[in-house]
Design a protein around this nucleic acid. Structure first.
Lengths: 340, 340
DNA sequence: CCTTGAGAGCGAAACGTTTTGCTTAGGCTA
DNA sequence: TAGCCTAAGCAAAACGTTTCGCTCTCAAGG
């Protein structure tokens, strides 16, 4: 009923609390006594009380994760990868969802600090994050993923967004396309801003002029947004011959739109973003900019663990990872088809 | 640097620790003193230490959530809904991912118990869950969602799976279909087992005979599974005229397959499962069995809060919620089209 | 005038660990 | 043999709350 404590173990073994504690924390204890303690613990169904331990040691062996969107393959894949790595290091993980709301994000940070987490990994909602000062005061290290944080000096793991989009544009241009469109979200989101810049710059460099205004609209970051954007593009008087999608949602939405419209209209070439399971299923196999999710997870775990261990310098570190362009059939598909 | 404590507040206010504690827990304290304490707390940036509080009070004001799959709209939507309700009641939420692994599930339960959660909500991986005894011993209530737990007497919130599928079958039969197929996963998963039974029974009742063996295959619960299953069905010598998809993944996979194959083959009518955002985007608008996610979330929150408050009887309660059949265009679509 | 009870406050004892010194025994070196 | 070191163990003091009794005051009721 009532959980066992060190005192119960003391009763069964005759050892002192200090020795028992030492054993549970990997200190030097005689073999015979180790066995004794383990046996007693098993008999009692003993489990350490994290509250007492945390209160005294000021460590929780727990990390907090705050996600801008819980319901996103990209995020959850990274979290799963990180969790595994952190579990090996003895840390548990608490996941919070800020549901794209800055207020909820601040609240989540407070919750985590209250839970005395030893570190925080965050996919921020926006460029600025409120409530990080408390973490700084408490000495709780923070690592940002996917987007850096403007108003705090914290480590960050991001991809080279401009280069990522550039590689997509390069491919399309090399395949002969000259009229490229971009489906992307609003500039306030870091990744969208960067990808947009990468798109414009590369198009300019390769074709000699900036993309037409109608081809770089702003759509809501959602499947519907991608769908609507693609429909809009296809209804233009001069539709693009190729479309780059700036993230997963746009890719999916655009693909759906193409599937529906394809019978009636000549479909443009498509380059999508993120490693979606769908990619294995959609025909023609789409060309994709693939983020190194495993690497991102590993790097973030490494950064936060180093910070906790105090092995990192005062400077915030920025890790920029490269992306891969997995060429499918869709990039050149249409050119071939429209020629036929 | 080092966090403030009651002692600091005592220094600033001259009040005793007992009084300060009473105030922070809503007890009777003179207005003047309340103001004094609040002021001091603000000046000190005071935040209560959850470890000390939990150690003493044996309550954490935190609930644990264990998901069989973090990366699932269905699950995350429910979690988001529950979290909101629980936050209102003053509870924080810790989310764990068992990644479909029974071992990880047990580990997550231990982690949560160690964190002294006041209750656990779980979407179980399988019919049986290991590690629940500890929760029972500690008096930590558990509520299962989506699937009941066979080896423990806990509350559960599920939908009427047989009726859900039955409604889909009824609609298709009423539309004139006689050759129905089911895309579903293995029997070991509760929901799949139930939906399969519902399918067979209703087909039998409406058409007079059980569905052909080839039309009720077992596919992996994944988008690919749905895709492969649909392709297999369409390649049969006598393909079905209508297909029921037993969950979200199957629906999505099947839809993709249809989109690709449609130009070549007469497409069957399709009834899908779960309220996917995609539904708003796909044309023809699919008919869907929609789970009452908001209700499920609310009911689960209610059950766990009641248990914590000790207001529930000894009997485990089983809440069975109904589903809605949202009729789209696809159910009758093909019949019309194939007549044309 | 005495009793009763409620409101407000206090001191001190938990809660279950970790951690800090301090002992002791035994082995090694000089 | 003296001196020193290490391994192993112990008692007791934290850690920051909540909670259990007590006390005191003041107002109402008889």
């Amino acid at each position: 009923m009532v959980p066992a404590t060190y005192k119960d173990i003391r009763r069964l073994t005759g050892l002192s609390l200090a020795t028992i504690s030492k054993h549970f924390n990997g200190g030097n204890v005689l073999y015979a006594n180790r066995v004794l303690i383990d046996q007693a613990a098993r008999d009692l169904g003993y489990q350490v009380n994290d509250f007492a331990r945390g209160l005294r040691s000021r460590r929780s062996m727990t990390l907090g994760v705050v996600l801008a969107q819980l319901n996103s393959t990209f995020n959850t894949t990274i979290v799963a990868g990180m969790e595994e790595r952190l579990r090996e290091a003895g840390y548990g993980t608490i996941i919070c969802d800020s549901r794209g709301s800055a207020a909820a994000e601040t609240e989540a940070l407070q919750f985590l600090i209250g839970k005395m987490v030893d570190g925080i990994v965050i996919v921020p909602v926006g460029d600025r994050v409120d409530g990080l000062e408390v973490a700084a005061e408490r000495g709780v290290p923070v690592v940002a993923i996917d987007r850096p944080i403007a108003n705090a000096a914290v480590d960050a793991v991001v991809i080279d967004n401009r280069a990522a989009i550039a590689s997509a544009v390069e491919l399309l241009c090399s395949a002969g396309h000259t009229d490229l469109a971009l489906l992307a979200g609003p500039e306030v989101v870091f990744t969208m801003r960067e990808r947009r810049i990468g798109f414009r710059e590369t198009v300019k460099r390769r074709t000699g002029r900036l993309p037409r205004r109608a081809l770089v609209g702003v759509d809501p970051i959602s499947i519907e947004g991608g769908y609507a954007g693609m429909v809009r593009l296809m209804r233009l008087e001069a539709p693009p011959t190729a479309v780059v999608c700036a993230n997963y949602e746009f890719t999916l939405g655009a693909t759906i739109a193409l599937n529906e419209l394809a019978p009636d209209l000549p479909a443009p070439a498509l380059v999508g973003f993120d490693n979606l399971e769908l990619a294995r299923v959609i025909r023609p196999r789409p060309t994709l900019v693939v983020q190194p999710v495993a690497q991102i997870a590993a790097k973030a775990a490494e950064l936060i663990l180093q910070r906790i261990a105090g092995q990192a310098g005062a400077e915030p570190r920025l890790e920029v990872l490269g992306t891969e362009l997995v060429v499918g059939e869709a990039a050149t598909y249409t050119l071939r088809r429209s020629r036929a």
